[in-house]
Design a protein around this nucleic acid. Structure first.
Lengths: 235, 235
DNA sequence: TAATTTTATTATGTCATACATAATTATGGC
DNA sequence: GCCATAATTATGTATGACATAATAAAATTA
């Protein structure tokens, strides 16, 4: 009885719940001990004894670490440190229906910022094969008349390929997460201005610049290509 | 015995663990029912009965949602939907000592991409007050001779202010998360080339361009300003 | 009656125990 | 020495109990 109070006394007053504190201690432990990926941490029961709480609490704390991708637990083997997939878990909360309007708009902006700013990575890492892939993709660049689904697929194929070329997996994962949100914002009534039909620099044009131009040129071209989206933000 | 198999039979074969499936069902539930922030979801015991698993499993699944920031649970009141702070939880796993080298480098790149690409947001939202703030900050722009800590603080003040001006809270939070990683990569031996002493466009120069130039100019200037970092990536 | 204090209720937080499950290790036969 | 089988072990899941805190209901008082 009054167990929590006793724990408080023992460990100094902390405001959070027991699991919170245990979690913090575990994270601290992981960080302090220069653990490498693949190292195992003590078993649940051992941790329970060491810290002096029930296995339930330990399990809840470990579960959080697992949810954050800091550890993976295998039967018999105990939990092992993993290199966290920083965006892996994020995708579940990155849901248009659960985010408030302002955040949605900000995520929309984030994609635009990334694509305008990624030029240098592209130029440094692009290969001849990539150019060929892009050529194949833009070969069927749809006109405005064609149906929306096809348009969306083409958009995803082209811009997705760019993220791939960037050679930055983290950014690519991030983009994949942003995609549904972007789609949602684009289609929803969240942005005041309607999408314009005006044509800006095409995907084809971007490929040409990627092949023969410079990062500066590409940044400006991409900015132009995305002007429809930018214009809807800035009204 | 063979409870899991029975569950599989009932619900169609799914590969993941029981908690995984329950979690998925709960997320699905939250999304389908057009729930607004503040709405409550059924009690743990009710959920256990509805889905047909023990309270333990329900609790673990709910705990994940809580860790992801989708819900908050209050005693007696049950769990309530919250607008997820998408990057809130991420900060725990965004730890230099837990990320592998490649991810670290990619996060490093991510920051560069963001700052080069954010120009349009800046120009659209900057105010006279912001310019004054920036002027105050660059007034004490340190020279190379001065000590590192001061340099770092100045860097953070200046670039942080830019994110603030962008008006994109999501991006700002993201940057705050990236900062320690960036610092770590910059200081560590992860990048092959040493940091150059060569001077590029200064913070002062960036402010001038922000005041009188265009987004195009700013992008190029920022790219130049960050060339030290870019050069270390591209060797 | 209205306001305030006290008590009861209720849902989550924590603990404890038991067993299932899957992976590893040990054993045994050849 | 190799392969199949059995024992071990740590996590996964279920169940039941009580603590705690927030709320609702009841009782007391002005």
């Amino acid at each position: 009885m009054a167990l929590e109070l006793i724990q408080d006394k023992l460990k100094g007053i902390e405001t959070n719940s027991l699991v919170d504190r245990v979690e913090a201690r575990l994270v601290e432990l992981l960080q302090s001990r220069q653990l490498k990926v693949g190292d195992t941490i003590p078993k649940e029961i051992e941790l329970a004894e060491i810290i002096g709480v029930s296995r339930t609490v330990i399990r809840e704390a470990l579960l959080r670490l697992r949810t954050m991708g800091l550890i993976e637990s295998r039967k018999k083997k105990g939990a092992v440190i993993t290199s966290p997939d920083i965006f892996g878990n994020l995708s579940k909360s990155m849901n248009p229906y659960l985010l408030d309007d302002n955040t949605l708009r900000e995520v929309f902006e984030l994609r635009l910022v990334l694509e305008v700013g990624m030029a240098d990575l592209l130029y440094h890492r692009i290969t001849k094969n990539d150019i060929e892939d892009l050529r194949r993709i833009v070969q069927d660049e749809p006109t405005d008349a064609e149906n929306r689904i096809f348009n969306v697929n083409h958009e995803i194929a082209f811009h997705g390929k760019l993220y791939e070329i960037s050679g930055n997996q983290t950014m690519r994962k991030f983009q994949k997460m942003l995609l549904p949100v972007f789609e949602y914002v684009h289609e929803s009534g969240l942005l005041k201005k309607p999408a314009s039909r005006k044509k800006f620099i095409s995907h084809r044009g971007l490929v040409d610049i990627l092949e023969n131009g410079s990062p500066e040129m590409f940044r400006n071209a991409m900015r132009n290509h995305l002007d429809n989206h930018f214009a809807r933000l800035f009204d």
